[in-house]
Simulated scan of single mutants.
Amino acid sequence: MDPRFRQTPPFGRIPLNGGAPLSLWQKLVAVIVGGAMFVLALMFSVVLFAAVVAVGVVVWGWLWWKTRAVRRQMREMAGNAPPRPGQADGGLVIEGEVIREVRTEEEPPRP
C-alpha cells in the first residue's frame, strides 16, 4: 500500500498544535466556547419544540373543525342526542362499589 494514501484511524490522535499541551487560556476559551454552544443548542431545541407543538395544535384544530359535520351526522344517524356530562342513555350513572355481608342464622351478629 502506498504510504501517501494511508489514512488515520477514526478518532485517532491528530495533534493540532504540534502536540504541545493546552495553556490555561486555551482551556478557558474552550470551556467558554463549549458553554456558549451548549446554550445556543438548548435555545434552538426549545424553539423547535415550541414550533412543533404549535403546528400540532393547529393541525388538530383544523381536523376537528373539518370533521364536525361528520360527527353531527353520525350522532343523527344513531338517533341519539349527545349525552350530557354525568349521563349515559338518558339516565344518571353513579359509579361505586357495593359490599354485601351475608349472615346466616348460625352465626351470632357482630357488634
Rank of each mutant, 00 (worst) to 15 (best):
M1A: 08
T67E: 15
E101L: 07
V39H: 00
P82N: 06
K66C: 09
L24H: 09
P9L: 06
A30T: 09
A36E: 03
R110D: 09
R84K: 14
L24W: 08
E97R: 11
P85L: 12
S45D: 02
P10Y: 13
I14P: 06
M37R: 08
M1L: 04
V58M: 03
G86N: 10
E97H: 08
F5C: 10
V31K: 08
V53A: 05
P83H: 13
N80Y: 07
E101I: 10
G35F: 07
E76L: 10
P3A: 01
V98C: 03
R103G: 02
A88P: 00
M77T: 02
R75A: 11
P109T: 04
L40W: 01
G19E: 00
R72C: 09
E105N: 14
A50L: 10
L22Q: 13
F11D: 14
P85N: 06
M74I: 15
Q73G: 11
M1W: 03
R103N: 09
A51T: 05
G12K: 08
G96M: 03
A88S: 05
A81P: 08
P108H: 09
L42P: 00
V29E: 04
T67G: 08
V47C: 07
F38Q: 04
V59A: 06
V93C: 06
P82V: 07
G91P: 00
A50D: 06
A41D: 01
P10L: 14
V93I: 14
N80F: 07
A88V: 05
L48T: 11
G34S: 08
R72H: 15
R71S: 15
V55T: 09
R71P: 14
V46W: 15
R110E: 10
I14L: 15
F44S: 11
E95V: 05
L24F: 10
L22N: 12
I14N: 14
R6H: 15
W65I: 06
E97L: 08
V102D: 09
P9C: 04
A41Q: 03
V59M: 11
Q7C: 10
R100G: 00
M37F: 09
G35K: 02
T8E: 12
